[in-house]
């Protein structure tokens, strides 16, 4: 068992942080890599990109949003409980090098994944401008941690409850209009990455995105996570999860992410009903 040593609730309990004991993975993991978690015997294998690793303490941290049965089950795990299986580190690490000015764009729980990458880029000597967005103020996570690794930070909310009233792309456009940017890293919901990439393509700024398609094994064996990159098939689990944002077929990715939407809905509703009847 992989024990949970720290647990935090964010965004009114819709986003959960778990720090998990996994010394072998913690020793090896680099920013941008992911793990697969499975809660119990009948559980699903869920890939999550790591938000933090502590090789000395032997722990890894994941931050996830409760969106279905599996993540709802994860949410029930308390400190002292654990995951039956944690597999990793998987995927290729982020290429961290000094390029000059980097704009890091994060949306939703993507901010959690963006944090170690941003820190790595900062440590590599880049000037960091960060834009983070959420639907409303209470859903915006890790603002202070992101601020600590950024030279500039621009929060945005869809409803205007905090920071810029509007999308992260509005702020990005303004920055690209006013200064030279050498690279953009965008991690968040697929539509956000799609529109960020669309804008940066116009400005010809190299852009990295991190994809999280449906997968089973995470080692290149099932091919379920295949994504079209510049018209070629790549496996996100071994060739990614990070890709050139300008080459990703986002529309196909969105359709593929919805492959099991009916099953997921049914499973989640059954689970919620069961939880309700128990409490």
């Amino acid at each position: 068992m992989f024990q949970i040593v720290k647990r935090e609730e964010m965004s009114g309990g819709t986003v959960i942080l778990n720090e998990i004991e996994a010394p072998l993975i913690a020793r090896k993991a680099k920013p941008g890599q992911f793990v697969i978690l499975k809660a119990n015997e009948t559980g699903e294998r869920i890939p999550l990109t790591m938000a933090e690793t502590d090789p000395e303490k032997g722990t890894i941290t994941v931050i996830y949003m409760v969106v279905g049965k599996s993540t709802a089950l994860f949410k029930t795990l308390q400190v002292g409980d654990g995951y039956q299986d944690v597999i990793g580190p998987l995927g290729k690490p982020t290429h961290l090098e000094k390029v000059g000015t980097v704009v890091c764009v994060g949306g939703g729980t993507g901010i959690a994944v963006l944090h170690p990458i941003t820190r790595g880029l900062k440590e590599a000597g880049n000037r960091i401008i960060t834009i983070i967005g959420a639907r409303s103020k209470d859903l915006l996570i890790l603002e202070e941690r992101m601020r600590a690794v950024s030279d500039e930070l621009h929060p945005c909310t869809d409803d205007g409850s905090y920071g810029h009233h509007g999308f992260v792309t509005d702020v990005l456009k303004k920055i690209l209009d006013t200064q030279k940017v050498d690279q953009v890293v965008a991690i968040g919901p697929v539509p956000m990455m799609k529109f960020v990439s669309k804008i940066t393509k116009e400005y010809q700024v190299p852009t990295i995105v991190s994809l999280n398609p449906i997968m089973v094994d995470g080692t290149g064996m099932c091919g379920g996570c295949r994504v079209s990159i510049g018209g070629k098939n790549k496996f996100a689990c071994v060739d990614g999860p990070e890709f050139d944002g300008h080459l990703v077929d986002y529309d196909e990715l969105m359709l593929r992410l919805a492959a099991y939407c009916e099953e997921e809905k049914r499973c989640y509703e059954d689970y919620c009903r069961m939880e309700e009847s128990l409490s």
Binding site: T42, V216, E263, C267
Partner: peptide
Amino acid sequence: LSANEYLTRANLMKAYLFPEVDTP
């Protein structure tokens, strides 16, 4: 689906028992 994915879901993940197990 690749046969690898299809069979892994069915055999290793026991998805034929869905929704008793979580993998569809």
